[in-house]
Each structure stands twice: as structure tokens, then as C-alpha cells.
Design a protein around this nucleic acid. Sequence first.
DNA 1: AAGATATATCGGATTTTTCCGATATCCCTA
DNA 2: TAGGGATATCGGAAAAATCCGATATATCTT
Lengths: 99, 99
Amino acid sequence: MDQVELFKALSNKTRLQILQWLKDPENNFPEQAEYGYDNGVCVGQIQKKAGLTQSTVSEYLSLLQRAGMVKATRVGQWTYYQRNEEAFNSLIQLIKKDI
Amino acid sequence: MDQVELFKALSNKTRLQILQWLKDPENNFPEQAEYGYDNGVCVGQIQKKAGLTQSTVSEYLSLLQRAGMVKATRVGQWTYYQRNEEAFNSLIQLIKKDI
DNA sequence: AAGATATATCGGATTTTTCCGATATCCCTA
DNA sequence: TAGGGATATCGGAAAAATCCGATATATCTT
């Protein structure tokens, strides 16, 4: 992953919020409870909380995925997104060593 | 410092390079030797290495300063820039705790 | 197979960023 | 104090990002 693209992915208020919300899905996405949190949270829940359109949130999530910050899992007609904690650790190592 | 603005400051190849170069000024800016490295490296040296215009590099450096990533010291007609290592530590803490 | 629901992709208007040349400001020296 | 060198600021053209509505695709249900 290109360093510049990684930081660009983090240079947006909504995208940062999504990453923060996904740290505590149970509290931030209570409506997800009936479907479980095993694979994360589905796009619709995130969209509702973000208050932007479906297309924008979908694009933000795939951008975060391309940057490696989240993992996506398709289950039926839903796509669940969850944080990729390894990417956060790598980012810290990147800042410590490379930048 | 706003988180988004901080990541925006890091979302540019040249600005990232400048921060990397300033980790090892002696090797990356040998011409600075005769003026010393105590306060960092002056704008002209950084501009020469970056290969962009003087105005662009000057703006990039003040942007990095506003983001807190570098410190500036004016000495005569020169402005010396050096890394602000505390800001890098804060950034790591920010990623660990807030994001 | 048709309709409904969830998500992804496309095209585009608007805003922001990039990077430049020109010019202004600051400081030093003759 | 006039001129020269170093840096900062300004105005703007081009490129990229933001975020939308419309539409396409995928999946489930009936």
C-alpha cells in the first residue's frame, strides 16, 4: 500500500469516524445486534450513522478497504465491514520507522 | 490540531519525503554542513533536494509546521526547519487511542 | 421468474489541493 | 540606504477529492 494513499484515506472526517465507530460496534451500531457482530457491521448501518448517501458511504468503505484499514465480508446480500487491526499496527510501525 | 488536517499534511509525496530527509540531515543535506545542523536545515537546501519551486516548498514547510510536524527557527535571512519528534509520538498515541 | 432489498458503480457539479510564476517582505552588507 | 539574497505570500490554471442522484448488480423471497 502506498503511504500517500494510506494517509489520504485517513484525511476525511467521515472515514475517520467510521474507523472509530468500528472499534465498538455493539455500542455504536445497536441495530446490528440481531444479525451479530462476527463479521463487523453492514453498510446500511454505517450509512445511517454517517448521514451521507448510500453511494458515498459504499465508496468510502471500499476506499478504506483498498487502503487496508478494514476487511469486508459478503454474506448474502450484505457486506460486513470490520477494522483490520493489523493495518493499524503496521501504520504505527510505518510512522516509527519510515517517516 | 485537527486530526483530518494532520493526515492531510501527510498525504503528499514531497511532504513525506521532507520529513524523512530531516531524520538524517547530515546525509541528506551535506551542503548544510558549513552552516551547521543545530536548528535543522534551511529552506533553500530542502527546495533544491525536492526539485519543486521555492514558493511551493516554502508553503509545504509552513503547512507541515501548522500541522506541528516540524519546528521553524529564523536565523538572519534563513529559516531552519527540523522535525518535531514529539508530534510523531503524539500521532502514534492518536492512532492507538483515538482511531 | 418477478419483485424487493442491499450494495456497488457511474457521471457529474462543486470544492479542495497541487504547484507554478510573480511579487512582497525581511535581513544582511557595502 | 541601496542592493542583493533568502523566504513568504498572492493569484490562478490544472488536477484531484467530495458527495450526490441515477442506475447496475447481486441476492433473497415468493
